[in-house]
């Protein structure tokens, strides 16, 4: 099978890999590059566990071909904490007890980050809308919604 070169930035650092054509970004990140924070919950685009941010847009890495990401800026939950300090969203998920098994958590956090990056002060409806592509089987969603709203408030207070 022909291999193609692909180069992108992952959480600020340069990555270059030869991958089989047709490899999903999810596989490339997990199996080749070793960032296992995006999770494969369905590989069909229906659970959101594999969510990452590509050039500022929320994307499902299981439906994205790695070769289409040449030159892209890719962000995952693994790169969110800076200098060992948790991002306000991560902090809020902890404080709100918004994780149980945690399998949906990295995807949820990415979906929430994409929202807060464009809408720093979202309404509850906007949070719900932003999370609606992500499945959680443990929490009943409410703690996750609360965590995102809390993180948004904490962020706007810091900015003020």
């Amino acid at each position: 099978m022909a291999k193609v070169p692909v180069q992108f930035t992952l959480n600020g650092s340069e990555k270059a890999e030869f991958i089989e054509s047709g490899t999903t970004l999810l596989h490339a990140l997990r199996d080749k590059i070793g960032d296992t924070s995006p999770k494969g919950g369905c590989h069909q685009g229906t659970c959101g566990a594999c969510s990452v941010i590509i050039d500022g847009e929320l994307r499902l890495s299981c439906l994205t071909l790695a070769e289409t990401c040449d030159g892209a800026d890719i962000r995952t939950t693994a790169g969110l904490a800076e200098g060992g300090v948790l991002h306000p969203l991560q902090r809020a998920f902890l404080d709100a007890f918004a994780t149980q098994c945690g399998f949906c958590t990295p995807g949820m956090i990415m979906a929430a980050k994409a929202l807060l990056d464009r809408t720093p002060n979202p309404s509850r409806e906007e949070v719900v809308e932003a999370l609606s592509g992500n499945i959680c089987r443990c929490t009943g969603y409410e703690p996750i919604i609360q965590a995102v709203l809390t993180a948004a408030r904490a962020d706007s207070q810091n900015a003020a």
Binding site: T46, V127, V128, I135, G140, Y141, I145
Partner: peptide
């Protein structure tokens, strides 16, 4: 066979609990 066909309430369908 997927989460689109197997139905569960999403974050927008929550009952006041």
């Amino acid at each position: 066979t997927d989460f689109n066909q197997y139905l569960m309430p999403g974050p927008g369908d929550l009952a006041e609990t």
